[in-house]
């Protein structure tokens, strides 16, 4: 069970969930949260996408990151495994970042450095740390547990549910609360706005483009903006495929040292 924010993994968005609209009107908050979580993070049983991130800092300088991402769900709404294979820039080329996402404990993370043939284990205590220097957080990649926040339905518009989410442990995060707009049809989170401890809106995550992939509504372009410090990151997803039959053993040390065919081409 998990997540509400729009994420890098938005491409996983799933439709399996979409019920008749009239039924949706009477959904409970928990049902909306769970459907959004599945839509945003659990599309298909597995998936592959190529990601291009453009990071623009407050001074307008840009940097790019390109990587291939593989995902496999161990259980729908539950444990997942991610494999991220970097292609650009060249100083991180062929590095691999792997995550085993758990529900009841900290995630396991590994980084493989090919020049040293080193499999490094990474402490995963803080999920709200920048992912590869972008404005996306680790938590945006693998999802924030739905159990970590109290959810309230703030508003229902013609097109979306607006949820207000307040952290149960405010000391563990940098925000005081955030609101998420969830599309009524697809249950995809399309916009999230974060308030800092002073109550200022300081961070915004948006789905810029949504497309059906194999019948599954999928975020193919998203943006995070830092509204106070300045700077933003745009992620574009291409060559998205679901249900490609990824084997579980891809997400092991064997394939850290020898990247699988699914990411090399």
């Amino acid at each position: 069970m998990k997540k509400t924010v729009i994420s890098i993994m938005g491409f996983l968005a799933v439709a399996l969930v979409i019920g008749p609209l009239q039924a949706a009107e009477s959904l409970s908050v928990d049902e909306i949260v769970n459907k959004a979580n599945l839509a945003a993070y659990y599309a298909g049983n597995d998936g592959r996408a190529e990601v291009s991130m453009t990071i623009t800092d407050a001074q307008g300088r840009t940097r790019t990151r390109e990587f291939v991402i593989l995902r496999r769900d161990v259980a729908n709404g539950g444990e997942q495994k991610f494999y991220v294979y970097f292609k650009k820039p060249s100083d991180v080329r062929k590095m691999v970042f792997m995550v085993h996402k758990h529900i009841d404990r900290d995630d396991d993370r590994w980084l493989y450095l090919p020049a040293l043939d080193l499999v490094k284990r990474i402490a995963a205590s803080d999920n709200r740390t920048s992912f590869v220097g972008s404005n996306f957080f680790y938590e945006d990649v693998s999802g924030r547990s739905v159990d970590e926040d109290v959810h309230e339905l703030a508003e229902v518009t013609d097109t979306s549910y607006v949820l207000k989410n307040t952290p149960k442990d405010p000391g563990s995060v940098e925000f005081s609360s955030y609101t998420v707009h969830i599309d009524k049809k697809t249950f995809l989170p399309v916009k999230a706005e974060y308030l800092d401890k002073q109550g200022r809106k300081y961070r915004q995550v948006e789905a810029l483009e949504i497309k059906e992939i194999q019948g599954i509504p999928t975020v193919i372009k998203s943006r995070v903006k830092d509204l106070i410090a300045g700077g933003e990151t745009v992620s574009e997803f291409s060559k998205i495929k679901y249900d490609i039959g990824l084997k579980d053993n891809i997400f092991t040390e064997r394939y850290l040292r020898r990247p699988p065919r699914e990411v090399r081409r």
Binding site: D106, D108, R121, I122, A123, A124, S125
Partner: peptide, 9 residues
């Protein structure tokens, strides 16, 4: 042996 422990590795 290597393992997560006390919030670290």
């Amino acid at each position: 042996v290597r393992s997560p422990v006390f919030g670290g590795i």
